[in-house]
Amino acid sequence: MDSAKTQEILESAEFKKLVKTRWNISLSFTFVMLFVYIGFLLVIAYNKDFLKMPLGDSVNLAIVVGLGIIFFSWLITGLYVYWANNYYDSDVHEIKKKL
């Protein structure tokens, strides 16, 4: 592959946007996940009583939140795959055509 062509793609607005969008999505998702998990730990550290709030006869908020974080991990990972498969990959495909 000739380097002029490479340079042209690297400097194209299209490619720059691809890279920028990728990290915008990745880093936002990362911060959301960190926020959820660290938030959970801090609530446990500072306010255990809040999590003891009963929901029904035997289930409490702690159980719902704990299992909820597992479901949330699935959801956010799935969301990323959905975005990457449907949007990122088609942009990559467009740029690759020029190579």
Partner: peptide
């Protein structure tokens, strides 16, 4: 599952179903 949690609660008290002594120091937890 609710009946299972109920059984745990009746035998060992409701604290078993909530965060206990594992996290006391926030920095340690983090």
């Amino acid at each position: 599952p609710a009946e299972l949690f109920m059984s745990v609660k009746t035998q060992y008290g409701s604290d078993m179903l909530a965060p206990g002594g594992f996290i006391t120091n926030p920095l340690d937890a983090l």
